[in-house]
Simulated assay, not measured.
Amino acid sequence: MSAHRPSHRRRRGATVILAATAVAVPSAAVATQQAPSPTGTARQTAGPLDDTYYQDALGKSGADLKAALHTIVSEQTKLSYDEVWDALKTTDEDPADPSSVVLLYTGRSQSKSDNGGGADQWNREHVWAKSHGDFGTSTGPGTDIHHLRPTDVSVNSTRGSKDFDEGGGEVGEAPGNYTDEDSFEPRDAVKGDVARMILYMAVRYDGDDGFADLEPNDQVGNGSAPAIGRISVLKQWNTEDPPDAQEQKRNEAIFGIQKNRNPFIDHPEWVDSIW
């Protein structure tokens, strides 16, 4: 079972390649901001997509909200696995170097053309591990770019199909990431990104399209079950690492390619409403 590290080691890194302030985001990309209520809890605030894209979800909570979002995000353009290569070169482009992409776990900027199977090349990481539900690289969950990210080939292998949790030893090729025999902890700067990608998948793939019903749970070692944990940790990461400008920009780029959005980037407060 994953060993937990003291909370003081979970601070957001100060030397992340993508600083939120460095990226300009189209105004339509930002559907909401979280604001404190008088009691200190997050409240929903209106955004420019709420009277269009999200109109059928507003005012709902819990299972009703999840069902409404499922219907909304299921309207999408589906890619082939080969098409994912070019899509990621757009969605994960380094804003400081248009010829490169930024790798999820290492934060390294790497040439778009340096992709493949070599140890130090980049490849396509399924953040919701494709063995969890046995969907492989089939068009659908296997090619949904909301959870596909460029990663260092060796680091991708280290993560493998492990669930997400806190603890373990530091990954040598990716400082700030930790792993043990049954879990993987990403670097602080992308913890929330990982959580929101996982929860998007749980909303989008609900068992009604020929694929397994994907659901988070609060355990690790899920194997081939259509589940990934730990939901309590993912919720914590969603709160501690809210969407930044680069994550919002990526959501907008995917909307342009795949024609659907990750609602938890636009409305991170919906995570606690559903789970």
Results as ranks from 00 to 15, higher is better:
128 W>D: 13
149 R>K: 11
21 T>N: 04
106 T>L: 03
254 I>S: 04
173 E>T: 07
138 S>R: 09
152 D>A: 02
77 T>L: 06
53 Y>F: 11
197 M>H: 01
169 G>V: 12
44 Q>D: 15
217 N>C: 02
266 D>L: 06
266 D>F: 04
130 K>L: 08
43 R>C: 02
262 N>C: 11
93 E>C: 02
230 R>A: 08
163 D>T: 12
53 Y>I: 05
29 A>V: 09
165 D>P: 01
14 A>N: 04
214 L>Y: 14
212 A>G: 06
146 H>P: 03
19 A>G: 13
68 A>C: 00
32 T>K: 12
222 N>S: 04
62 G>A: 10
272 D>A: 06
153 V>E: 00
148 L>A: 10
56 D>K: 15
48 P>A: 03
57 A>E: 08
269 E>N: 14
42 A>Q: 02
109 S>E: 11
212 A>S: 13
104 L>T: 14
43 R>W: 02
105 Y>V: 11
53 Y>R: 08
20 A>D: 15
103 L>M: 13
99 S>C: 08
78 K>E: 11
226 P>R: 05
198 I>T: 06
162 K>H: 10
23 V>M: 05
114 D>K: 13
70 H>W: 04
69 L>Y: 00
233 V>G: 03
175 P>R: 04
1 M>P: 08
165 D>C: 01
40 G>Y: 09
65 L>S: 03
1 M>R: 09
232 S>R: 06
158 T>Y: 08
85 W>E: 04
115 N>S: 14
255 F>C: 09
240 E>L: 12
11 R>F: 07
144 D>F: 04
149 R>T: 15
24 A>N: 09
35 A>P: 00
82 D>F: 07
63 A>I: 09
36 P>V: 00
104 L>A: 06
115 N>C: 11
154 S>M: 07
51 D>H: 00
252 E>H: 13
160 G>D: 12
155 V>F: 06
235 K>I: 13
186 P>F: 04
23 V>G: 05
80 S>E: 02
171 V>D: 05
226 P>F: 03
12 R>K: 14
274 I>Q: 00
225 A>T: 12
88 L>S: 03
89 K>T: 14
163 D>I: 07
243 P>T: 08
24 A>Y: 05
4 H>R: 14
117 G>C: 02
65 L>D: 02
204 R>T: 14
63 A>V: 07
198 I>A: 11
238 N>Y: 06
97 D>C: 08
61 S>D: 14
73 V>I: 04
77 T>F: 08
46 A>D: 14
189 A>V: 15
17 I>R: 15
244 D>I: 02
177 N>A: 10
138 S>E: 11
195 A>R: 01
62 G>R: 04
40 G>N: 10
57 A>S: 13
249 K>N: 09
83 E>W: 01
271 V>L: 15
65 L>I: 01
16 V>I: 13
30 V>E: 03
166 E>C: 00
155 V>P: 05
174 A>S: 15
35 A>N: 11
66 K>H: 05
18 L>E: 12
135 F>V: 13
56 D>T: 15
67 A>H: 01
213 D>V: 01
56 D>W: 00
